[in-house]
Simulated assay, not measured.
Amino acid sequence: MGEVWLVGAGPGDPELLTLKAMRVISEADAVLYDSLISDDILALLPARCTRIHTGKRCGAHSMTQIDINKALLSAARKHKKVVRLKGGDPFIFGRGGEELEYLEKHGVQVQIVPGITAAGGCAAAAGIPLTHRDYGNALVLHSGHTRFNEFSPSQNPTRVFYMGLRQAGPITAHLLQEGLREDTPVALIINGTLSTQQVFKGVLMDLPHIAERVLGDSDGPGLIFVGEVAAMARVQQQEANAQAVA
């Protein structure tokens, strides 16, 4: 069984690809790519690799998500290194989570390479700061349609808090007051993407306690994730045994 890499290709400019994305693409034996991938980025694919166009674009899908999942599994059974090349970031409205769940359910090892999401790339190209201390302290990324192609207001949004470990108590109180359940999944990530990365999981009612323990053990930067998807966070076994709080 081969390995699948979910790779974010950014908003289109090949110079916005990460170094890791470039390396993984150059080593690919098979690449499944969307219609949003620019021709300039497709030109970087190895000549020897198998190319599969999934054709996904809003309102015109040549392959359903089920078909794509099956194609990824089939490619992993034939090739050593399979790349799923997705516009923007695979985990921001890119259905990367669905593909991750499907592949892991079938015993395929999956790696994720984040990319510059369209909101960040396009805002930067237009000179728009998405956050600014004088004008707002929050950013909401909202899908313009649901799986049934109509618009729907936010439902169970994922919340991410930057620099919030020392404010975990007030954050928890506010979220509970908003109506979130006490057992809403949470995850804390310290030193994310580094070799010293640590992931802690629990539920909302335990967030202040988890944050207090994390602050006592680490001085690295941390993020707080609140929402159902937080339950999917990968925790190394040794950390899970020592730091499971929920």
Rank of each mutant, 00 (worst) to 15 (best):
W5M: 03
T50S: 03
L16R: 05
V235G: 13
E99W: 11
V226L: 06
L85C: 14
L223V: 14
N69S: 11
L176N: 07
I189T: 12
H142P: 00
E15L: 04
L100T: 13
D40C: 04
T64R: 13
L175N: 12
V113A: 05
S26I: 01
A125N: 09
R133E: 03
V140E: 04
T193Y: 15
Q243F: 11
F225I: 10
L103Q: 02
K80S: 11
N241M: 05
K86N: 03
E104N: 12
L215T: 10
I224V: 07
E15M: 04
W5I: 02
V31P: 01
M205T: 13
E150H: 13
G164R: 00
L176K: 12
Q177F: 08
L194H: 13
V186K: 00
L17G: 00
Q177W: 03
V226Q: 09
V214Y: 05
T146W: 15
T131W: 13
R181G: 11
M22H: 07
P90V: 01
L72Q: 09
R23M: 01
T193S: 12
L180H: 11
A75K: 06
V83G: 01
V4R: 02
R234A: 09
D206H: 11
H79C: 08
I92D: 05
R51I: 13
T172V: 02
M1L: 13
A240G: 05
Q198E: 12
T184N: 04
V110L: 09
Q155P: 00
D206Q: 12
D40L: 10
V186G: 01
A71V: 04
R147E: 11
Y33E: 06
K20S: 01
P11N: 05
A230D: 01
L130E: 08
T184C: 10
A75N: 06
T54I: 15
R166E: 14
N191M: 06
P90C: 03
M205A: 12
K20W: 00
C58Q: 12
A168K: 04
N149M: 10
M205I: 14
V186T: 08
R84T: 03
S38F: 10
M63A: 14
E182Y: 10
A168L: 09
N149A: 10
A242D: 11
G127C: 12
S62T: 13
E3C: 07
D217M: 12
E212S: 14
P185Y: 10
H209V: 14
L130A: 05
V229H: 03
R133L: 01
F148W: 14
F200E: 05
A119K: 15
